[in-house]
Design a protein around this nucleic acid. Sequence first.
DNA 1: CAGCTTGCGATTGTGTCCAATCGTCAGTAG
DNA 2: CTACTGACGATTGGACACAATCGCAAGCTG
Lengths: 236, 236
Amino acid sequence: MRHPEAMNDQQPGQDATDSLEPAKAGVSSRRIADYLRTAILNGELAPGTRLRQEEIAERLGSSRIPVREALRMVEADGLVTVKSYSGARVAKLDFNEFDTAYRIRERIDPLALTLSLQEITDEDVARLEALQTEVEETTSPDRFVALDRQFHLATYTGCTDKQLLATVTRFWNTTQHYRRAYAQLIDDRGRSIITYEHRLLIDAIHRRDPVDAERFLSGHIRRTRITLAEHPELFD
Amino acid sequence: MRHPEAMNDQQPGQDATDSLEPAKAGVSSRRIADYLRTAILNGELAPGTRLRQEEIAERLGSSRIPVREALRMVEADGLVTVKSYSGARVAKLDFNEFDTAYRIRERIDPLALTLSLQEITDEDVARLEALQTEVEETTSPDRFVALDRQFHLATYTGCTDKQLLATVTRFWNTTQHYRRAYAQLIDDRGRSIITYEHRLLIDAIHRRDPVDAERFLSGHIRRTRITLAEHPELFD
DNA sequence: CAGCTTGCGATTGTGTCCAATCGTCAGTAG
DNA sequence: CTACTGACGATTGGACACAATCGCAAGCTG
């Protein structure tokens, strides 16, 4: 399997070693951008948190210049918003933005999956099943979120298009906060629905059936959106 | 009508005054990014062109720092690629990337249109018809490309979601080069097909019919992709 | 002559200093 | 007491100087 852990928009050249820590090598601005992305996705930096350039620079042992470039990159990812002379803050999606992000995912994730089916190997499918077993067994909400994410991104292993993967990942990222919050309050019934849908999805992938795969996936994402929308307390 | 000319990812606050020139106000890095985007989309900077920081800085009367931030932003737009210690170049899409970009557009442009229909006014529709008349009347390929782009983006006037518009615009941008090249060799038959499809689209928008609007639009984009793919000479 | 090595020039990456701008909080007038 | 105003501090934006890295070409070696 290729890159199940492509959480960040890694540039070609460096592998996403399986760690949750940002890469240690390469140019500062990219390392800093990775650090920020990881911290935001992990929830260490909550939405709305102010990001002061000097503080980040000091913490990572560099000067403000690479930090500023990193902030521009992460801004383009939609994870922070930068206002002139006012500073950067961790981005916060309101309900409408959340809703639209999910509707976008309902359309492009299935495309990535269809393209992935053309290249996916039996080993990839076996890895998917193993991941899904882990998803089902874990009891930790944080670990569930991470594994669920790994599982879905792993279904796109066979998709080779950088732009599409970057776009798919982008909307996974901007909505990550809400999945994390939801995982804290999901019940057994919700878990079993997810399990059922994932198993259907794996089966369609195993059969290399793009129609079923797309149908199951878009339905899965749609139901997730609807379920999340039923919890208004997640949106301030 | 709101922002028919939203070619670049304008940040909130500054209006996209109808000019083709980048904005003159605001922070340097954004102005420079706008300049680069506009120059690339106009074809003044051909794919593969090397972008040296100092040259850009000198031309725009600033130092390299804001240029570097601008390059990071435009890199995130997919319009340039930056390699460490090696420099930035205007991005070039190969055939597969072109194909995928269009398939993405076939899925998300209709979504933007459907969301737009909920807010679009009769004045907006009238503006669309006027634009389409201009499209039909022009004989200049360059002007045709610009007007066709304006027309389509104008159909998304009612879509208020920034992320979606930014994503839609992104793929318009990365594929702009091929539309420009194709416009040079399009024939009357091609033009009349486009006219017909645009008129159908306007009618569906006028009726606020999301099903027809999406069907016509995705078909229009799909046929454009297929037509472009029939000209391998466009891809090196 | 081919292939490798090395050194130089060009270009990018980073650190430091100064200028521009924004938010806030006193202070004052109404 | 409220609303406005102005000045100050904090923070970001920009310019310059220097270090790090890469690509290429000249030169050496077999």
